[in-house]
Design a protein around this nucleic acid. Sequence first.
DNA 1: AGCCTGACAGATA
DNA 2: GTATCTGCCAGGC
Length: 108
Amino acid sequence: MTESIGPAAEAPEFVRLVLDVVRRIPQAQVMTYGDIAEFLERGTARQVGAAMAGYGSAVPWWRVVNASGQLPEQLRGRAAAEYFAEGTPYDPERERVRLARCRWDGSA
DNA sequence: AGCCTGACAGATA
DNA sequence: GTATCTGCCAGGC
């Protein structure tokens, strides 16, 4: 059999591309799933979501949200702590980031 | 092959 | 503002 490989090594190329983008999102800013697919000119929002579900723990996953500025229920608590820590504009009532203020377009 | 599921999104009512 | 439907497409069964 092949020798032991790390979790990232068995990730498909699309997953690597997604993770590379997520790592570049600046602190206190976010991208949506669709933004990442569009930025890569590859895949769909749903595929980005699948990539994050499987491998997202290796990157700043809380900086990737859906088009409503939210993450799944299970992750909202931990994400909120990160938003508070890094100063991301966040609406605790709605449990969502304020996309109009912190959406990153991919430019530095 | 078909069917279902999913960290989604836009249109519509 | 919420609810529902449809399109999307890879992956698992």
